[in-house]
């Protein structure tokens, strides 16, 4: 427990496990706050907290999640991610080895993404008062464009692009947590999304809105955007990619993959005449190589998300009111 009290132990923790991965000019200052150079243009600032059980899952771990989650939040306003802070809440008894692995992974994720971890904090809570490790990150990014990327810019006719298959993160975590085995690999999609977003903007695509799909999955994200924009979205079920292992796992647990969490997928709303170009750009980035156009924004002002299946039946997507309880009578 002594590790959080600010004494010698705490110093050791920082020195041995944390600083090595915060390898840059600012952390070397070892002050309470980081002093950053002036950032040109508009600045974007966001924060997010990460709790996940288990800490390590197929395709990622909580450290990567904490970096990519905040990077993705910055990316969704079209910002180039620059700096991150990192706050750790450790539960007493967390193996140092685990902490080291998470921090190493955070360091690599930051380096790969080109963001710098510039400030941080560590607290330790008593055993039983935390779930091993919680991480909070905050992020700063800069806007290098003049667009406003927001739900109210969604226009009738806009093409809705989805950056890849869905449902992998939620199912990978769930399967690992519960010890369930499914046919085929079930890897989290956990990944940074700034690269395809910046590529769209650099190519001059008039991006109307972006949203990363996290908890609640594709359906919840689109329902929120439909409500936020007072627009109706029409989706084609056939164009929404879901891998066999995800489908199999969802069928086993009785879950709808449209509502399962993702950590490396986003939707983009772009004008119809730029849809093909935008799609080609997205498909060039590895993280969004499987991008597809999945639907369009209709002229109707009903805030609805309509999913059309292969035989033409239409389903209205709603928020989930809680757990998925059977309604069949």
């Amino acid at each position: 427990l002594g590790h959080g009290s600010g004494g010698e132990l705490s110093q050791r923790l920082l020195r041995e496990y944390i600083y090595p991965h915060f390898d840059n000019a600012w952390t070397v200052q070892a002050h309470d706050s980081a002093t950053l150079p002036r950032i040109g243009g508009r600045t974007v600032f966001t924060t997010d907290s990460f709790v996940v059980s288990p800490l390590f899952f197929p395709g990622g771990n909580i450290g990567e999640l904490a970096v990519y989650g905040t990077v993705n939040d910055l990316a969704m306003s079209g910002a180039r991610p620059l700096y991150l802070s990192c706050s750790l809440i450790l539960e007493e008894g967390l193996p140092m080895k685990t902490l080291a692995a998470v921090m190493a992974s955070m360091g690599r994720a930051a380096a790969a993404t080109g963001v710098q971890l510039v400030t941080g904090d560590t607290k330790v809570v008593e055993k039983g008062k935390g779930d091993g490790l919680f991480i909070n990150t905050a992020g700063i990014g800069s806007l290098e464009h003049v667009l406003s990327i927001a739900p109210d810019r969604i226009q009738p006719g806009d093409s809705i692009l989805l950056s890849g298959d869905i449902g992998r993160h939620g199912m990978a975590v769930m399967a690992r947590r519960e010890g369930l085995e499914f046919d085929g690999p079930l890897l989290s999609d956990c990944a940074p999304l700034h690269e395809p977003v910046l590529a769209l903007l650099e190519a001059g695509i008039n991006v109307h809105c972006l949203r990363d799909l996290t908890r609640g999955g594709l359906a919840t994200a689109l329902v929120e955007l439909a409500e936020g924009s007072r627009r109706q979205f029409s989706l084609r079920e056939n164009d929404i990619a879901i891998t066999e292992p995800v489908l199999g796992a969802c069928e086993m647990l009785g879950l709808d993959p449209l509502y399962v969490a993702n950590e490396g997928r986003f939707v983009a709303f772009v004008p119809p005449h730029q849809a093909q170009q935008a799609l080609a750009i997205l498909q060039k980035c590895p993280v969004s190589a499987d991008s597809r156009a999945i639907g369009t924004v209709s002229a109707s002002e009903a805030a609805e998300v309509i999913l059309r299946n292969s035989i033409g039946c239409e389903r209205l997507l709603d928020r989930l009111p809680g757990e998925q309880l059977p309604r069949i009578c």
Binding site: E178, G179, L180, E181, F182, D183, M252, L253, G254, L255, E323, L325, P326, C329
Partner: peptide
């Protein structure tokens, strides 16, 4: 076999397994 194992886990831990008292 894989399904057996998954079902066993779901049933034993009571996860994704709503309880019913239904005659249907």
């Amino acid at each position: 076999p894989a399904e057996q194992q998954n079902l066993a886990i779901m049933l034993e831990r009571g996860i994704y397994s709503p309880v019913c008292t239904s005659a249907g």
